[in-house]
Design a binder for these strands. Structure first.
Length: 415
RNA sequence: GUGGGCGUAGCUCAACUGGUUAGAGCACUGGACUGUGGCUCCAGUGGUUGGGGGUUCAAGUCCCCUCGCUCACCCCA
């Protein structure tokens, strides 16, 4: 029979790795909560149009990477390629701006993009993201970066560099774009093929081209920070002051531009030196115009998202404790199995972690399994025990064992 | 979408220029130890060599096709 395999670019997170995921997500939730964020659970499917309007119709994500299908009522549905658009949609749809003066929200879940898989890139990938609505002040930018910094620290992840930049606002970005165009117009032939295309579509992206020649060339190009309007410059400087005050190390990367259309002002990335080509672990920025563009009230906002798989691959999971059962019930013979079964039911009702070997194998083989599962204690129920109305309780670590009356077992561990 | 690398047991890998029945370690199961785990020793289970076709007396090995994995480009978390 033909084997059915998982879909390309989609992977199973097996129990060992899932424990690391749980650990990371728990840490993230705790830190988000201390910063006053609440979880929002958003759907995996959305009207496709939401992403056309937020991410931008000409971005690769929308043009060729989005999973879309037509529903039975002929509406175009998309599997979400990112989380921000959904959170913004929800924020508007439920008038969260009315319910609360500001909102701090986070989400954890899978995203979908039909790209060619490679290291750190999957077709179904998980993001941990957060958004803040209703604050324009640069201190919230810094606070958010500080939160991420703390999260990475608490996970003992080192070697990350925080890069920041300001990509301006609708007032000043057009001038910068023009200046870039002017600069590259005379050197079009020197640019790589891709950048010649970028020149037309989005000249900002020439700045982060990996080709060494384009890279060198754009070193001479106009700098985004030189073209910021007064407001943008003040904002950017204040973000830096606040980062210093919070003790968050950073570098300015004037080549940092974001791929999604909706960003304004602050843009940032946490970059790792040890991840391969896809080295951005977390990225985000401010998007002060998006809420309004999607039909909501004019609301400043900022957000980020973390690539879960990339974060996991930097995470050393060896200190994470494996889950092992407290009790392992070994039953020898059918009668003992029945006793054991009723015992384990009582234990479970008391919330005591216990597993039972239903194999009816030899004591030796059941003991081996108890060891394999790393159980703290083993309860042995055999003929001798049955006759005496006791169970043998063995401490696996100390290799000591005592007989305990059957009726006292639950009480012994129950408290 | 484009390009490179790689597919042998559950995992990591062997198999000289094509040459007997494709091996080893780990893991798994059992035994030595008839009711006591880890260590040791012994034995056993496990393979359509990713799949299909071709060349040859003979293919894991050579050729073609195909599928899958992987890395990179594009793009992005």
């Amino acid at each position: 029979m033909k084997q059915i395999q998982g879909v390309k670019g989609v992977k199973d997170i097996l129990p060992d790795e899932a424990m690391a995921w749980q650990h990371i997500q728990q840490k993230a939730r705790n830190i988000f909560h201390t910063f006053g964020y609440s979880e929002i659970i958003i759907p995996v499917i959305e009207a496709a149009e939401l992403f056309l309007r937020s991410i931008g119709e000409t971005t690769d994500i929308v043009e060729k990477e989005m999973y879309t299908f037509e529903d039975r009522d002929r509406k175009k549905i998309a599997l979400r390629p990112e989380g921000t658009a959904s959170v913004v949609r929800s924020y508007i749809e439920h008038s969260l701006n009315q319910a609360s003066p500001f909102s701090k929200l986070y989400y954890i879940g899978p995203m979908f993009r039909r790209e060619r898989p490679q290291a750190g890139r999957y077709r179904q990938f998980y993001q941990i993201g957060a958004e803040v609505f209703g604050f324009e002040h640069p201190m919230i930018d810094a606070e958010m970066l500080s939160m991420l910094n703390l999260l990475f620290q608490s996970l003992d992840i080192s070697g990350l560099e925080l890069q920041i930049n300001s990509i301006g606002c609708p007032n000043c970005r057009p001038q910068f774009r023009e200046a870039l165009r002017d600069f590259f117009a005379g050197r079009l032939s020197e640019l790589c093929e891709n950048c010649q295309r970028r020149f037309e579509l989005n000249p900002l992206r020439i700045l982060d081209c990996k080709s060494s020649h384009c890279h060198a060339l754009s070193g001479e190009a106009p700098k985004t920070l030189d073209y910021l309007c007064a407001d943008c410059l003040t904002h950017f400087n204040k973000v830096q002051d606040s980062l210093k005050s919070a003790g968050v190390p950073y570098v300015i990367n004037q080549r940092l531009v974001r791929g999604l259309d909706y960003y304004t002002h602050t843009a940032f990335e946490f970059v790792s030196g040890s991840l391969g080509a896809q080295n951005t672990v977390a990225a985000g920025g401010r998007y002060n115009t998006l809420v309004e563009e999607l039909g909501g009230p004019s609301t400043p906002a900022i957000g980020f998202s973390i690539g879960m798989e990339r974060l996991v691959s930097l995470f050393d999971s060896s200190p994470v404790e494996k889950q092992s059962p407290f009790l392992f019930i070994v039953a020898l013979g059918e009668k003992a199995q029945e006793q054991g079964f009723s015992l384990i039911n009582k234990l479970h009702k008391e919330g005591i972690s216990a597993i039972m070997d239903y194999s009816n194998g030899s004591l030796k083989s059941q003991m081996r399994k108890a060891d394999k599962f790393n159980a703290a204690h083993v309860l042995i129920l055999g003929e001798d025990e049955l006759a005496k109305g006791v169970v043998t309780l063995r401490d696996m670590k100390n290799k000591t064992q005592v007989e305990v009356p059957l009726l006292e077992i639950v009480g012994k561990f129950g408290s």
